[in-house]
Design a protein around this nucleic acid. Structure first.
Lengths: 188, 188
DNA sequence: GTCTATATGCCGATAGAC
DNA sequence: GTCTATCGGCATATAGAC
């Protein structure tokens, strides 16, 4: 792996673990086993390197959501697949967590890939929910865009509950609760 | 207001805006208009001051949830009151955001008030949902604890969606989606 | 391209005067 | 109780050798 690659991958790890404010160039360089000069050769500085890292993390997340939702299962099955997907719950979402970072939010450039990624996931889920409503899998009065927002929010918020308690239980409970709410009770 | 009070209140503001890692003693002192010495007279250091601030924020949040849920409305009405409560959505949750802070999570002492507060809210909501299920307001197959987790998660995650986009719409959409899911469709 | 040396300023804390 | 002075170390970046 090239030095540039090593820097991006290491930055992705540290952004996930400690956020933007909590990640110093020095920490990146030490973990990557690279000297100061290399970083400033390939990138203009910390924001530039972080931007490359965030963009890649967003791409990967979108690709993984595509894999989960591009199945021929029922709409419920695909929502379930998204919610029950294997996750390192206590690590949280590598994209969502950046929304709690003051410097990321203050920079339109750093925030853009975060925004695009989350909007993409919500949009893809909305399409699935719409199909589910059309097919009668979900209740007819549901607004796909709103339900999709609730699904993504349940996941993002589930991380908050789990991390607060130091255990994954609360995340799983929230997912179970949402799935129960999605199941129709007005027919067999 | 005493100097000690000023320090706590200012720290609460900054923790909300910038988190623990992003908040320096210097920034606190400048905003509070207090000298370095005062802080180290009243508190042993940054963690000690932050603990006092987090505890108070947790107390206030719990009290505000009590006010919202201690009504004689229907269960649905109380859940709705919690979800539609006035919020500065883009600021996010002053307690929940701390779960994204590596140093808060690394300290059992700092994490404790965060955990207790979120667990308290979830617990109170679970009681409301249980009443709703008993009264037939909510579908009988719902598990109160799970639905309560989904409700809290939707709020916490709603902040993530809103902050990512820089607008409150996504938060409101998630709340609408969850409320629609809570409404029974199997009876008039 | 990668390294080390160096620079300025902030971080978190301590010392000690008043 | 509150202040200023001072400390060692890290944050972020630049300079320039190789």
């Amino acid at each position: 792996m090239s030095t540039q690659e090593r820097l991006i991958e290491t930055t992705r790890e540290l952004l996930w673990e400690r956020g933007y404010v909590g990640t110093s160039p020095k920490a990146i360089l030490q973990r990557a086993g690279v000297g100061q000069g290399s970083m400033y050769h390939h990138f203009t500085g910390k924001p530039d390197l972080a931007l490359a890292a965030i963009r890649r993390t967003g791409e990967e997340l979108r690709a993984s959501v595509d894999r989960l939702l591009d199945s021929r299962e029922s709409a419920y099955g695909r929502v379930e697949a998204y919610l029950l997907r294997e996750r390192d719950v206590l690590r949280g979402c590598p994209v969502g967590r950046l929304t709690m970072d003051p410097e990321v939010l203050a920079s339109d450039e750093l925030r853009a890939p975060v925004d695009e990624t989350i909007a993409y996931v919500r949009d893809r889920l909305a399409t699935v929910v719409e199909e589910g409503v059309d097919r009668g899998e979900f209740a007819a009065h549901l607004v796909p865009d709103d339900v999709a927002a609730a699904i993504v929010a349940t996941v993002q918020g589930g991380y908050v509950l789990a991390r607060a308690s130091g255990a994954t239980d609360a995340f799983d409970a929230g997912v179970r609760g949402l799935l129960a709410l999605l199941r129709r009770t007005d027919r067999a």
